[in-house]
């Protein structure tokens, strides 16, 4: 019997975006990372070749780590006290990209300053050859105060700067445009809000090959299904030809998973939850793998063991069935 396999032919293509710049291109990165370019749903190799594998970023913070699970702090050890060493450890762990997320304070607990942000980002650039994503704490005024000087002092690196949000994107987009950087825009789990922000950012003149979108996800057990379906819908819209959804997607399963009680807390929880450390890594890994199936181009993780597991899954998914 011969079976005619249904093949979807889509008119749209996801934008191709390159993170980081080597010396030849005006930066200092030892390697760059290219994402996007899909012409089919994730891993449908029998339809079109998937030009770029989803990539894995590991996240670090040069601020206080009190809200990081003890499991994560134990996994990284004392490098968490030194952003440069932490960055080097992330590269050694096998990440493709480093995400530097600033909180509101420095490690001593004092309000964070632009000088500290600039010197930290420079130290990280020095310590690692990977492309960087640099995110503010998510408060409009502080984000702008930190990200602008970082952008100015790292011109040409093609950093990904954020967070651009509905109420606060102009300053960051402008400083990215002036300094050859990229931006990431985050919207709360909604197809139309994602499109809207992408329209606003491109209206300022930032080319589409310098924007990635973070449609936001929930952690496993805490609304992952909303993020999952919004990502599937965004990707379907992109393939159908809607230009303002054709951006590669970056999501943060590490952050979302490790703030759930299941991953964060080891005491006073039901016995039926089992071993804390293993549970936390499963929680992050399963959140990430599901989002990769839904179309994520960049997953931002926190635990080095999760990176290994998600890497193995992505490598297998990238391998087509023997013809």
């Amino acid at each position: 019997m011969s079976i005619e396999i249904p093949v979807d032919k889509w008119p749209g293509t996801v934008n191709t975006v390159t993170l980081g710049a080597t010396e030849a291109d005006g930066g200092t990165r030892a390697k760059v990372v290219t994402i996007g370019g899909e012409q089919s749903l994730p891993f449908m190799h029998f339809e079109t070749e998937m030009p770029h594998s989803p990539v894995i970023a590991l996240e670090m913070t040069p601020s206080r780590t009190d809200d990081w699970s003890q499991i994560l702090l134990d996994a990284w050890g004392d490098v968490v006290e030194d952003p440069a060493r932490w960055a080097a450890a992330i590269e050694a762990a096998g990440a493709d990209v480093i995400v530097v997320t600033f909180g509101l304070t420095d490690p001593a607990g004092d309000p964070i300053t632009p000088d500290y942000a600039v010197s930290t980002v420079k130290a990280v650039l020095e310590a690692s050859g990977l492309p960087l994503v640099v995110l503010g704490p998510g408060q409009a005024d502080v984000d702008n105060e930190l990200i602008v000087p970082v952008a100015d002092s790292t011109k040409g690196e093609r950093l990904v700067l954020g967070l651009c949000e509905d109420g606060n994107y102009r300053t960051i987009v402008a400083s990215a445009m002036a300094n050859d950087h990229l931006v990431v825009g985050r919207t709360p789990m909604d197809v139309n809000l994602a499109k809207q922000l992408n329209i606003l950012m491109t209206d300022m003149g930032l080319p589409l090959d310098r924007i990635v979108m973070d449609p936001t996800t929930g952690g496993l057990g805490y609304g992952i299904e909303y993020g999952y379906s919004v990502m599937e819908r965004l990707r379907l819209a992109a393939l159908q030809g809607d230009a303002m959804t054709q951006l590669p997607m970056l999501v943060t399963p590490g952050y979302e998973a490790w703030r759930t009680k299941e991953a964060k807390v080891g005491e006073g929880v039901p016995e039926t939850w089992g071993d804390w450390a293993d549970r936390g890594v499963h929680w992050e890994t399963l959140t990430a793998v599901s989002l990769v199936e839904a179309g994520a181009d960049v997953v931002v993780l926190r635990h080095p063991e999760s990176l290994k597991r998600v890497r193995e899954a992505i490598d297998e998914l990238m391998t087509a069935a023997p013809a």
Partner: peptide, 11 residues
């Protein structure tokens, strides 16, 4: 093991 099946069942 509980820490293995719990996340699978939640997903």
């Amino acid at each position: 093991a509980p820490e293995f099946v719990y996340p699978i069942l939640v997903l």
